[in-house]
């Protein structure tokens, strides 16, 4: 499995990427990172290390100051990349269904078909029956589900997630982790997932890259060994605990390297 993943084509190739903001702050410097087709990649690092900036480079929302970001040709069309932010960032003036439909509306999909596809995606994230709910009527976890459904509405090849569950309570977070893995298995998209939780990264990812504090670059990389489907048994297993400990140690070393 791991061997296969390494031979797979990269959806995004970042080579020696640097990004400096106008105010002189260097967010990234010398970042080299691939997102391989079909993998679940977690990007782990301390706050402010440029993880989110890296995701935006992958999305094509930012251009690097130096270095190269090569995105697979298949990703350049609108809707081939989905993005989930730390906040649900729903439009408060439209209902759940219309929120999920947004990417389809922007792509000019006919209303009837767009409604059908958006409703199907809402059902897939476990929100069947909430089509007509306003965002303010939903819980934080449900809002995040709507946000995920919106990102998946166009059936993207690559899903970029920027600490999507950081603001949720632990139980909601664990459930959303499981549901995200199930969705990934069902729809087969590639994920790049930014987090600062080593536990979350081990539970979700096939591969974890650990970034340094700003200016961010990759310090270490670790592959996760886990049974397919993962689930509660994996969460409770010594294998999970030991891998968490290993990642935690690497992450601590990473932030210690600068501190």
């Amino acid at each position: 499995m791991k061997q296969n993943a390494e031979r797979r084509a990269a959806l995004v190739r970042m080579r020696d990427v640097a990004l400096a903001w106008g105010n002189g702050v260097t967010a990234l410097d010398g970042l080299t990172l691939d997102v391989r087709a079909g993998e679940f990649l977690a990007i782990l690092g301390p706050s402010g290390c440029g993880k989110s900036t890296a995701l935006r480079l992958m999305a094509g929302l930012l251009a690097p100051t130096r270095g190269q970001v090569r995105r697979d040709d298949g990703l350049t069309a609108a809707g081939r990349v989905g993005f989930v932010f730390q906040d649900p960032t729903l439009t408060p003036w439209s209902r759940a269904l219309a929120n999920v439909r947004l990417p389809l509306d922007l792509a000019g999909v006919a209303r009837a078909e767009a409604n059908e596809r958006a409703a199907a995606m809402l059902a897939l994230v476990g929100l069947a029956g909430f089509e007509r709910a306003w965002p303010h009527e939903l819980s934080g976890g449900m809002r995040m589900r709507v946000s995920i459904a919106r990102a998946l509405a166009t059936h993207p090849d690559l899903l970029l997630m920027d600490e999507p569950f950081a603001a949720l309570d632990e139980f909601t977070r664990a459930r959303l982790n499981d549901d995200l893995l199930a969705l990934r298995d069902q729809l087969g998209f590639t994920v790049a997932f930014v987090t600062h939780s080593s536990w979350e990264s081990v539970y979700l990812a096939d591969r974890i890259v650990i970034m340094s504090a700003r200016p961010g670059r990759v310090l270490d990389e670790i592959s996760v060994t886990a049974p397919p489907g993962r689930g509660a048994a994996f969460r409770a297993s010594p294998a999970y605990a030991s891998q968490c400990a290993a990642v935690l140690a690497l992450a601590a070393a990473a932030s210690g390297a600068v501190a």
Partner: peptide
């Protein structure tokens, strides 16, 4: 975030 989303979807 919505601003970025609108840019992402062209």
């Amino acid at each position: 975030g919505l601003d970025e989303l609108f840019r992402l979807y062209g």
